[in-house]
Amino acid sequence: MPLAAEILPVAPEDYLRHEAESPIKHEYLDGRIVAMAGAGERHNRIALNAAFRFRLASRGTRCGVFISDMKLRIEAANAFYYPDVMLVCETDTHPQYKSSPCIVVEVLSPSTAAIDRREKWLAYRTLPSLHAYLLVDSEQRAVEYWLREAGGPWRPGTLEEDEVLTLSCPPLSIAVSLDDFYEDVAGLEAG
């Protein structure tokens, strides 16, 4: 009987070197490299709306908004992910990745929802800088969130129609609504 080939873990430095030259994006999960799927129009519009809202709020500050081409390094999980949107307001100068976002947004699709809700959430919540994690559905008007006050416990919630949610990312305070995420996204029912 033939033996199965052993897959050796890849070092983070080798992953970063490979990723800098690769025409497709890969996430890094504790030594394993995983190719990423593409995204559709709704997904892109929602992510762009979130990034636009955060960029408007952060203009003229030291904060930066990054979209899905910037990696997020999570040392506690030995992982690199590509969040759909992240807002960083701390000094975080690495040119290939960021490690201290205060807000992370993932746009849910049927193929990624379980990973975003479990694997990524478990990893993201280890980041001391993170104040808000938002999951924005691409199939219906629904936003789930987890908020944390400085050093406190995580509080889950759901953004309702006509509700305004205030996200804290010192020095910023950003008000968002469902309409902010779903502007120009047609054909969605309320969640």
Rank of each mutant, 00 (worst) to 15 (best):
L135K: 07
L178S: 01
A57F: 07
H43Y: 01
R141W: 09
H26T: 09
R45D: 04
G191Q: 02
P101R: 05
L165V: 01
P153D: 15
V105L: 05
A190S: 10
S100R: 15
G64T: 12
F54A: 11
S129H: 09
A35W: 07
G187R: 07
E161V: 15
E41L: 14
L167N: 05
V176R: 04
R42L: 06
E139M: 11
V143H: 10
L134V: 05
T166R: 08
A190Q: 06
R42A: 14
Y182T: 02
A132E: 01
K98P: 08
I24W: 03
T91H: 02
T112L: 03
E90T: 11
D92H: 06
R53T: 11
L172E: 10
P83L: 13
T158R: 13
F52A: 03
E75A: 12
H94P: 07
C89F: 11
N78Q: 15
D92A: 09
T93F: 07
L29V: 15
P23W: 03
P110S: 04
E90W: 01
R141H: 10
M86N: 10
L8D: 07
A11C: 05
M1Q: 10
A37M: 12
P128W: 14
E19V: 07
L134C: 09
D180W: 07
L159E: 11
E90C: 02
D137M: 09
V65P: 04
H43V: 04
E41I: 08
A79P: 06
E41M: 15
I46Q: 01
A142V: 05
D137F: 00
I33Y: 01
P83C: 08
Q96Y: 13
V65Q: 01
V176L: 13
R117V: 00
L167T: 05
H43L: 04
V85F: 07
A132H: 09
L135C: 00
V104M: 08
H18F: 14
V105H: 05
H131D: 08
